[in-house]
Structures are given as C-alpha cells and as structure tokens.
Design a binder for these strands. Sequence first.
DNA 1: TGAAAAGTTGAACGAAAACTCACATTCTCA
DNA 2: TGAGAATGTGAGTTTTCGTTCAACTTTTCA
Lengths: 205, 205
Amino acid sequence: MTKPARSPKRRRQPTQERARETVSAILDAVIRLLRRGGSRSITTNRIAEVAGVSIGSVYQYFPGKRAIFAALHERHIQQVDRLLQQKMSESAGESLEHLVAQLMDGMIEIHAADPELAALLDSEVPHRAGPATEFSVRWQEPLRHALQPHAGRLGGAARLDLRAFVLANMLEAFGHAVATRLPPGLSQRSARAKTCRAIVAALQS
Amino acid sequence: MTKPARSPKRRRQPTQERARETVSAILDAVIRLLRRGGSRSITTNRIAEVAGVSIGSVYQYFPGKRAIFAALHERHIQQVDRLLQQKMSESAGESLEHLVAQLMDGMIEIHAADPELAALLDSEVPHRAGPATEFSVRWQEPLRHALQPHAGRLGGAARLDLRAFVLANMLEAFGHAVATRLPPGLSQRSARAKTCRAIVAALQS
DNA sequence: TGAAAAGTTGAACGAAAACTCACATTCTCA
DNA sequence: TGAGAATGTGAGTTTTCGTTCAACTTTTCA
C-alpha cells in the first residue's frame, strides 16, 4: 500500500474554477487533519472525506499521496516567503532591531498558524534535489543581503555569511519555540522581547 | 496497515539476558534502517529481519510498531541526557564560555550520530502527556540551574528562566544546524566557534 | 442547443504491512 | 535432570490503505 505510483502519470490540470477549489480543498483538508489527529491519521481516503470530495477527484489532480504533501509544501513555502519578504521590505531603512523584530513576528505568526505543519512537511516530503526547501538554508542568502546595510554595527571582520547562518537558525528556532513551546511561567510577550534582544546580541558578537 | 493494536495488551518483560539482547537488537535495527533507507523502509517485518530476530519475537516485547518507536525514543532521551549531564559536570567551576562550548559539542555529537533520528521520533511517537520529552523543554530547568553560578556575568535583572529558554533553544537549533545543515562555504569549525560566541552574547543580552 | 471536454463519484481491487498463534528451542532451578 | 517457564520461530491471517475505473454530472463553446 505504501509504494506509490512510480509512474509520472500526467494528471489533469484544473482549468475551471470549481476544479481549483477542489484542489485547494484537498490541501486544506491535509492541514485540518494535521491539526486534528496528527500525521498518523492522514490517509488519502480521509483527505478526500475531510475535503468533502471523492477519492477519485484527489487522484484526478495528484498522482499520489506524496504529491499532495509536495504541493502543500510548495504552497506553504510560498506563503512563508511572501510574508517574510513583506516584513523585510517594511523594515528597509530601519534599524537592525526593527528588522529582527519584524522577522520574529513573521516567524511567530507562521508557526502559530500551523504548529505541526513544518515538521510534517519536512518528514513527509522527499528531500528532493533542486533548490533547498529548508527555511534556514533557503533564507541564508536573502538574510545575508538584508544584513548588508547593518554591516557597520556588526563586529569588525563582519563575515556576513556566518551571521546570516546564525540569524536564520535563531529565527527558525525562536519562532517555533515562542509560538508553541513556551515553558510555563513565561509570557509570549517577554519571550518575544527577550529573543529579539538575544538575536541582535548574537549578530553583533 | 497503519492503525495498530489499540489493545493495551501486556507484553512479556524480558528477564533473561538473551531477551534483553533481543529487545536492544530490535531498537538498533530501527536505527540501522533509518541510516540506510530513511523512514519509508521501516516495517515491523523489516525491523525483525535486520535485527536478526523473528517477527514473533518483536511482538513478544512490543504491542505494536508505535511502541517500538516509543521505546527507542525513551532510550534516545536517556542517552542524550547522560551525555549532556556529563558535559555539564565536566565544566563545573569553569567559565560560561567553557560550559557553552561543552554543551554545543554534545549537541553536535548527538545530531551527527543520527541526523534523522530526532525528526523521526518526533513525528512517529505520539506526543504523550506526562513529563515533557522535547529537549528544549526538558532541559529548561537543568540549564537554568547551570547558569546560576554565572548569574553575575549576565545582565542585571538576570531572569534566569528567560536565559535558560534562550540557551535551550539555541543549543538545539545550532546543534542540529552545525551538524547537518551547514550551508556550502561554511566549515563546521568556524560555525561551531561562531555559534558558541553567539550563544554567550545572547545570554548576556 | 447539443456534443465534447472537464469535472466528479465511490465501490472495489490488490498489494503491502501489521499482527497472531501453534509449535520448537533454550534456560532455570528445585 | 527434568519439568515448567521463558524465549524464539515464521508461515499464515487480517487489516489497512493507496489507487483504479467505469459510469455519472456539469460546464464550455461552436
């Protein structure tokens, strides 16, 4: 049951509006299932059921289960990138602190929306070749670029690549942690403030 | 095939030495399968085969597949905790830098040993109630305690809980990143050094 | 307007995988 | 040393789940 269709069968491309709605209902259903029962309860038939669509329609647009996850992955990446790009542009010309705060807010927002999503997609979607899909790798270069204007405030040797590495991983870790792993006794407010300061300090180290 | 025995059937408790060897051969087999083919190739029959044990023996000690992962999870947590405890005690009385470096080395070592392990266990093992199993939550308190002696060097208000939160999450993120997500052009050596400095700076912020 | 194209349906198939069980082997200890 | 307990075996059963397909409905457009 697991080994899926190896055949790269062409599937229908949705052209009518209702078809596009079907496709997005399918992707949304995966998210809803994720929120409910965790990745264990996700089967193609269940996806169809939750999407309010027949199983046949699922296979009309996706050649197999992995393809559904892959499509969701892609959609998620696009949403994340769009949001962060916006946050970054909003803090163009502003201070380093402002940039970091904006990015952190974006990351918290993303992780709060679908806590398990990133983890599931990473584990279910085959690590394909091509452009890196992991956040901290994908954003390495854009972040390095965003740090450029603040190079003066960063330590002498600068090494922006190392600092982008630090920034990318701290954003990912703290975004997730502040949104979903806050230990008892810590408020999100104070954790957010603290992590922003920590990131700036780390960047300047 | 997925929904496993819901019944909380009692399974045999290994009392003889060979039985304990069987159990640990089973857990080791899961790791070996993980290193080889990725989580996709892990089936109970394959686990038995790789463990050099019959499938019957597997079900002698585990009520189902999840239970195998859960047991591996537990064993992994114990190994991780033992290693870090050792690193921590080795840097008792030493500087904050020394402590952070030791902990980072531990984390890198852990993630380098089985890059996929943590991800697999997180996605396969049901998030049970009871004591937290996630590293950054589990180590919050021990790390707060370890920071105590260095409170003087940390910012005035101290707030050791916030700093422990920062430390725990940076260790986890950077441990993973340095061991497995190093972007091209960065050496592990320089990344390690940089992240250690970043952590110290973040703690002092 | 009507026929072809696009979209939808869901029972049923088949293969993969979880799990059982009756029997064989090894160990323990009185 | 031998009987019962513990352990091990693996062919076979059962369940699950991905996937197909032939029939049906809706939309498009000439």
